[in-house]
């Protein structure tokens, strides 16, 4: 399968959404809303739920199933208030010692006027900084499009898994082509050189596993279970330091070590 085909599959409107995963994998979901400063931004959905017999915090980008729903959740493009809500929920998860499970599916953070006024850069930066020190496990599943800082802002995780047709990249292929070649129509070519597939990210050591899409919810369930089991005996210090090392290692030497 060509990279661009995976990009299109990742964006397919019929693809499973965070709400489908919540229905399939968790029970007793309680949605938490608002950044406690000024706004509820539904482009990120979050709350508390049970995974098997343990309470977890669930956070992820929300895309809609039709145009109306998509307008409500801004096509999964978060503004600063959505990132601040995510941060609030993560800090609360730390307080109550709940693991954090995040689902990534976004075209990127919203490039809007209010977003800039309300400090979208700082909101993303704060999430990166706080996630790097959070004293509970963070597990990320990239289910669809993982694009740019808007994806990264909820994926500084101990374990990252990607569905086999999900993509994760520095920018959309259109944006990449537009910046480097001043021609967004060279999207397909961009996708082919960007190394954005699950296999590419696995080879870079960014993701820990690639999940088959034959039965996606079941695969995601198994991945979360494995990760939680693997992390449950680690001390808080170990949780923090292994996550820190996971991201610190993208240095001058890591490409040679592959």
């Amino acid at each position: 399968m060509e990279a661009i085909e995976r990009v299109l599959a990742a964006r397919d409107p019929g693809r499973l959404k965070i709400t489908d995963y919540i229905d399939a994998l968790f029970t007793d979901f309680f949605e938490q809303r608002g950044d406690r400063i000024c706004k509820e931004d539904p482009s990120i959905l979050g709350g508390i739920a049970m995974f098997d017999d343990i309470p977890v915090t669930v956070i992820g980008h929300r895309k809609g199933k039709d145009v109306d729903e998509n307008i409500t959740c801004n096509f999964g493009m978060p503004g600063p208030e959505a990132f601040r809500k995510a941060l609030r929920l993560m800090k609360q998860a730390e307080k109550f010692d709940r693991p954090v499970i995040t689902f990534v599916d976004t075209p990127g953070a919203y490039p809007g006027k209010e977003a800039e006024m309300n400090g979208i850069s700082r909101a993303i930066a704060d999430n990166l900084a706080v996630m790097s020190t959070l004293r509970v496990p963070i597990i990320t599943i990239v289910t669809g499009e993982g694009s740019s800082g808007g994806a990264l802002a909820i994926s500084v995780a101990n374990r990252i898994y990607m569905l086999e047709n999900a993509v994760y990249s520095v920018l959309s292929p259109e944006g990449f082509a537009s910046i480097l070649w001043h021609d967004s129509k060279r999207r397909d070519e961009a996708a082919s050189v960007m190394k954005l597939t699950a296999k590419d990210l696995y080879e870079f050591g960014i993701v820990e596993g690639i999940l088959s899409e034959e039965d996606p919810t079941e695969e995601v369930r198994k991945a979360i279970k494995t990760a939680l089991c693997d992390l449950k005996d680690k001390t808080k210090e170990e949780i923090v330091s292994e996550r820190y090392e996971k991201f610190r290692k993208f240095d001058a030497g890591f490409l040679k070590n592959e």
């Binding site: 930066a125 990166l128 900084a129 790097s132 020190t133 740019s148 800082g149 990264l152 500084v156 994760y168 990249s169 520095v170 480097l180 960007m194 190394k195 954005l196 590419d200 990210l201 870079f204 960014i206 820190y244 991201f247 610190r248 993208f250 240095d251 490409l255």
Partner: peptide, 15 residues
């Protein structure tokens, strides 16, 4: 030009 590895620098520097 450094793709996803450049994105990871955001997480690294912030951490």
């Amino acid at each position: 030009q450094e793709g996803i590895v450049a994105l990871m620098q955001m997480a690294k520097t912030s951490a």
